[in-house]
Structures are given as structure tokens and as C-alpha cells.
Write a protein that binds this DNA or RNA. Structure first.
Lengths: 218, 218
DNA sequence: ATATCGCTGGAACGTCGTTCCAGAGGCAAG
DNA sequence: CTTGCCTCTGGAACGACGTTCCAGCGATAT
């Protein structure tokens, strides 16, 4: 039954690849060892020969998905532009694979996180931040990215069960617009901006805001 | 309305209270309808009479835990101090109940998030941010808080299975310190700061950095 | 006394991550 | 060629989970 040679052979690579595909179009809850084994035409037990458990599988999926972002190497631009480029690379990856947001904070993605922090830190250093503030400034950038990633993951989770981003956002904006003006003046005022803002632009403004803070603290 | 006599009567309040206690000392994975019903000396079915499902239970737990932070009302200080006070209140709540970090981004905590964003937004407005930038600046603050919360939750998850914060942090600092200097110069350089930094101070520096950025963009 | 109703708690269902194991197929030694 | 091992397979089974179902309790209303 089991053909050893050629494309039928299971491998960690094929498993991770299939896992990413399932996560991409079904969300985190769609990744199941049973569904995965069905897609790979095998049994759950076979997968465990190549992957220790689900946590390791998710970690490998994160690693593989972020590999491109982490490999990119642009030493030519200004530190500010380098941070923006790295952050935008992260955003695009998270936008394409929202499930990353739910995993990035975990211990399983430690090595990916370390690489990201290293990149950010080098640029913060190049920005002229005093040494004893570099760590905090860098972790501020990283925490912000993590927060956006988490929100993205949560939004994607809601999307799987129901409507599109535009519908979801429109409904939320409508809620904000109909709030009590005495209690929620701010949300009411920005409901329109919530309704048609661009996530990527919003993210970049956040990065720029923190960079401006770093520039001011220099 | 036949209420059971005395303290044996189940109620949504008692259930949420017990759920928070279980989350606090066992982490997210410790909250189980079976364990919860054992603690309350009843069956799983009884709990479902008061609570629709686990998602609603978690949402109620978040709401109840953040109630104090959301109720606080200090209109006396400067906008900057108001943001710091609100953010620190959030941090302390998250620090005491790390499982919040895993839930706050979700749709289940929407009403709590709205209240927080409203508070932050009012202060950002008071800081003199131009109207069309207020939404982005506020969401930057919120995303940062969410990111820190998420990391806190992930750290707490690791702590349940193993060592204390000091041990975990020390081990991580040791890893950073022993990295290849050519590939990870930054992480190596800040390994010491990672080892003995104060989470609360780190958080506050992040808030101040964003506030400085807002000040610069005004 | 009887019927009604809010509420209880235990049994049961389907699904999950994970473990176990009988055995298939290739490879090296006899 | 035969034998034995060794890597890898895939299906069965286990315990725990969220959730549903329902027989029945005590208090109240008729």
C-alpha cells in the first residue's frame, strides 16, 4: 500500500506546507491532525513520526512563513526606512497569514521573534538611541507589531465564521456611530474613520509614531 | 422565580467568580466546564443554564476583571498622566490576570476594548492631536497595550508548565548572551538588560515613547 | 393535591490531541 | 535467496474537552 518512493513519501516539509495551506483558508481551528492526515492521505500516527506535536507544527509553520521576511537584507537605506521596511514585511506576512498573530507571542516562535527583535534593535541603535534605552525602545516596536498581529488574528477568526472584512468593519463602525454621545464622544467622532481606514496605513502610522518618539528621546 | 435557598444556589456571578479564580491559578487550560462544575459541586449542564458557552464565560471574566480599571475616573490630571494612569491600570490588571492577554483581542471582549479605546482617545484628543490623526494615534496606544498583554499571557502559559518568571527570564538572557556576536550583536548587547528589567517600567517607557511621538506630531 | 416552572446534575455525543502497535517495504548481512 | 532489522506507515483506541439532552428536584401557583 505505502509507496516509499517519490511524491507519496511523507516529510516534515510536505506536512508543514499542507498545514500552512489549511491555516490560510480555514483559520486556526481548521488545522487538525485528522484533517491534515486526510489531506495527506495517511493516518494521524504517520504525522507524529515527523512532527513531535501540534505546538511544534505551528512553530514550524510560523518559521516557514516568516522565512522570507527574516531573510531580507537591505543595508543601504536609513535606519528609519529599514525599520519601516521590516515592519511592513511583517505586516504583509501577517495580513496574508493572519493565524501567525495568535502564535507569534508564544514560546514556540521564540527563534523567529529573536531574529525580528535583533533586526529592529540594530536599527534602533543606528538611530542614536542611548544604549540603556535601546532595549526598551526595541521592545516597544516589537510589542506594537505583536498587538497588531493579535488583532489581525482575532479579526480573521471572526471572518471565518461569518462575513468579510468590509462587512465586519462596517457593522462595527455603525455601532460606534450610534453610541451615546455623552459616554462615547471619541468613538462616535472617529466611527467614520474606522469604517474606511486602511489597515496597512494605520500600522505604518503607528510605527512612525514610535519612531518619532525614539527620535525625540535621542 | 424560584431561587434555591441560600448559598448553594448557582448564579452567573458565582460562576464567573469561580472561573476567574481558576484562570488565575491554573492558566487558560485550567478552565474547564468539568473542573468548574466540580468546584461548584454541580454538573456541566447546570452551568449552561446561566452561561451560553465558554466564549461568553471568558468574555464575562474579562469584563469583570477589567471593571475596576474601566470605572476609574480621574479628570484632574494632564492628558499625558491620564493616559499613563489608564495604561498602568491595564498593565496591573493584566499582570495579575495574565490570561486576559489571550482574550482581549477577541471579539468577545469588544465592549471592554471599546471603553478602553474611548478613554485613550479622549486623552489623545486633549493632547492636541489633529482630528484626522486621533484614531490612528489612539489605536497605536491600544495595539501596544494589546501586544504587551499578549506577551504576558504567553509567558504565563510557559510558567504554568514550568519555572518562575525569574528562572525563565534568566534562561532566556543566558541564551541571548551566548549568541553568535556576528549574527546577533544587538541581542547579545542587551542580554543583561533583559535579565533584570522591570516589566512595568518597560511598559511605561513604551507608553511614554508613543506619547512623545504624539507630542512631536502635534 | 396537583400541575407548573425554574433550575439541577449526570449521561452521552462528537471531536480533538495524542499514543500504540501491527505490519509494509527497503537494505545489509549470512 | 533468505533472514533480520530498521524506517516509516496508517488505523484503532484513549482520555479530555465543549456541548446537548433530559429525567427529575423543590418551590410556587391553582
Amino acid at each position: 500500500m505505502a509507496t516509499r518512493t517519490g511524491q507519496d513519501g511523507l516529510s516534515r516539509e510536505r506536512i508543514v506546507e499542507a498545514a500552512i495551506a489549511m491555516l490560510d483558508d480555514g483559520g486556526e481551528s481548521a488545522l487538525t491532525f485528522r484533517a491534515l492526515s486526510t489531506r495527506l492521505k495517511t493516518g494521524p500516527g504517520a504525522i507524529y513520526w515527523h512532527v513531535a506535536n501540534k505546538e511544534e507544527l505551528l512553530a514550524a509553520a510560523v518559521q516557514a512563513t516568516l522565512a522570507d521576511v527574516l531573510r531580507s537584507d537591505e543595508a543601504d537605506t536609513t535606519p528609519r526606512d529599514a525599520v519601516r521596511a521590516l515592519a511592513l514585511g511583517m505586516f504583509d506576512a501577517i495580513d496574508r497569514h493572519p493565524w501567525i498573530g495568535g502564535q507569534l507571542a508564544g514560546l514556540a516562535s521564540r527563534s523567529a521573534s529573536m531574529r525580528i527583535i535583533e533586526r529592529l534593535g540594530q536599527q534602533v541603535q543606528a538611530l542614536g538611541m542611548p544604549h540603556h534605552h535601546q532595549f526598551f525602545a526595541t521592545s516597544t516596536l516589537f510589542s506594537f507589531i505583536l498587538g497588531v498581529a493579535g488583532q489581525n488574528a482575532a479579526n480573521a477568526r471572526a471572518r471565518v465564521a461569518g462575513k468579510s472584512r468590509a462587512e465586519l468593519l462596517g457593522a462595527e463602525a455603525a455601532v460606534w456611530a450610534s453610541l451615546d454621545p455623552a459616554e462615547f464622544p471619541f468613538l462616535r467622532g472617529v466611527a467614520g474613520q474606522l469604517g474606511d481606514h486602511d489597515d496597512r496605513e494605520q500600522f505604518l502610522v503607528g510605527i512612525d509614531l514610535i519612531l518619532a518618539g525614539i527620535g525625540a528621546a535621542r
